[in-house]
Nucleic acid binder design. Structure first.
Lengths: 340, 340
DNA sequence: AGAGTCTTCCAAAGCGCTTTGGCCTTTTTG
DNA sequence: CAAAAAGGCCAAAGCGCTTTGGAAGACTCT
């Protein structure tokens, strides 16, 4: 059942039927009702391909997915996606993932924009002066950044959490507990979130006249193994830290294992605070010693990003508003006063 | 730059240009070269929306994503996606995720098929007599099932691993080591993979004249916490098992924690084998006691599914061939002879 | 009553591609 | 050497929708 047939059986023109269905004003309410009614009764659904060709609107939001044999998709992605998908569903939006060579995403961005394959895109895990952000900005497609980039001569729309504040507060707590030598096991420090977290720790230390020892900060891919290795290294060197801030729960697993392997204990010898993105399958309160965390639901962020994308597509949201969500500091058993 | 313009500047008809570009035979090779050349030089890319409308082909593969406030996307998904995406990229395929109410996916399947939104779909985590499989089969869109469904009066194409064989071998090893009371901490037993795994364990036991105590098999959502709870329950009851087979590494984390909390040890008091889908961020060899596993890369499965979908789309693959991949049994420190 | 305004609808022109059916030339064939 | 076949190209008809530019009739206003 297509427009032509529907129009024919209503003895109306395609124009009128189309307008009736799409809520244009220049059609009699009585007529509109008739049309709507018939459309529903016959289960008429406009062909999206045709609509796309005519309007350029796709009803889809895009994400360029970096891929490659040695590229691992961040496990956080799936939680973000849960939120994004949940919102998208309620607005009849689909998400198209365009896989791209991790080293050449630009081509893919250009393609999906030039081809009008999606109405809007989002960008995640941005870095300072992220080229994707600059590119997408000049290409002129609506977009939202999940996280933050920096150092542009233009503003853009983003949804981020207060990484700096979170880690500042976490560090402040540790300092208040008497810790003087803190360590930070961070994610890839080319990404903004990691930079902000490090800055948070440094600021808190500076506020007490302390510093973050360069040997006490590591930037690694966030795996259990890397958490373990980093911790071993930190604790086996001289001047070992008495407290660790860690950028992910998964790495924290490795931290806990390393501390145990060394015959030390949490929080007796080492205090630990990790960032928790809130996974349903791994909860900080269930660690052998309940883990203190800076907590922010990445799932809610996904829903929010979807909401803003939808708003931008329909023109309800404009401008370059960035929003920064506060992060909870949840204290559990893994922190205690500094030893000695 | 569109077809019309390109044709005009070549002083050819759109027909000829189109045919030259799409490799049709009825065009002079010399002409074809000219056309190809000009197309490349001017960066001509056919408009996919227009092509879709004309041909019905979209260059996209689809996945219906169950969503909802209380629906968690399986963390395995992201690894599967890594493989799928990597292959899809090399074939210029995009993946469209259509979020659907977890309780009504049928509507979404019907929509994406009726609207010709994708060229093929894949289905994951199937159950016996899975309605999605039946539906997609009657709708007549090319598809691949990742995993297996059962009990249809038709055949279909799937890529699955030998879950039964894997768990049979795992159980057999444990039995050979003298274990008599095995337990199985399984995933959702409404899904085929879980059923097959349970069957594998039962078969191995039966082969030695043993049985799987009903109290020793649990079916839960695969989270760390559920692994912990299940283990506590198993080990605190009378007739506690001396060996556990576990359906995921994440649950295994909980198993290990529970065993330790109870003052027991692996493999001294309890042997443990878990299934490993091969995550980059959590590796069995890095468990406090290196974990024996049944191993199969879900990422490779993703790539394979993409490959088969691509083949079906282009007509290279037909029929209802199912393929079952063998699973490695990797023995590490977490298994030992039965105590006592 | 004639001129202007709405209101309500329509015919037709896109959107950019593929594909059908046919028309010229050339080449092959009996 | 005429007839048939093949090769190479084109005009035009879709694909199914939106949107432009009217047009006809009803209504208001002076």
């Amino acid at each position: 059942m297509n427009l032509k047939q529907l129009a024919h059986m209503l003895a109306l023109s395609q124009t009128t039927v189309s307008r009736a269905l799409n809520g244009y004003p220049e059609v009699n309410e009585e007529t509109r009702r008739r049309v709507m009614d018939a459309a529903k009764r016959h289960g008429y659904r406009p062909n999206p391909s045709a609509r796309r060709l005519a309007t350029g609107k796709t009803g889809m939001i895009g994400y360029v997915l970096p891929t490659g044999a040695s590229v691992d998709i961040d496990p956080h992605f799936v939680e973000f996606l849960s939120g994004l998908g949940d919102y998208a569903r309620s607005h009849e939006l689909d998400l198209v993932l365009s896989p791209a060579d991790a080293d050449d995403q630009e081509t893919t961005y250009r393609r999906i924009v030039a081809n009008r394959q999606v109405d809007a895109v989002y960008i995640s895990s941005p870095r300072p002066a992220d080229r994707r952000v600059a590119l997408v900005n000049t290409l002129g497609i609506p977009f939202i950044v999940h996280g933050r980039s920096e150092g542009f001569d233009f503003d853009y729309a983003f949804t981020d959490i207060d990484n700096e504040g979170a880690f500042r507060e976490a560090a402040r707590l540790l300092i208040q507990l008497g810790h003087r030598r803190l360590a930070l096991i961070n994610g890839d420090n080319r990404e903004t979130f990691a930079i902000h977290r490090e800055r948070g720790v440094r600021r808190a230390l500076a506020a007490s006249g302390l510093e973050l020892d360069e040997r006490h900060v590591c930037s690694v891919v966030m795996t259990e193994e890397n958490g373990y290795r980093a911790t071993r290294r930190l604790l086996e060197e001289g001047d070992a830290p008495t407290a660790i801030a860690c950028s992910s729960l998964i790495m924290a697993l490795g931290v806990v294992r390393a501390v145990r392997d060394l015959g030390l204990s949490i929080p007796g010898d080492v205090s630990l605070i990790a960032h928790d993105d809130v996974f349903p399958w791994l909860r900080p309160e269930n660690f052998s010693v309940p883990l203190s965390t800076t907590r922010s639901s990445i799932r809610l962020a996904g829903a929010r990003v979807a909401e803003r994308l939808a708003a931008r597509i329909s023109g309800l949201e404009e401008g370059a508003r960035g929003e920064v969500w506060p992060v909870d500091l949840v204290v559990r058993g893994s922190v205690a006063g500094a030893p000695g």
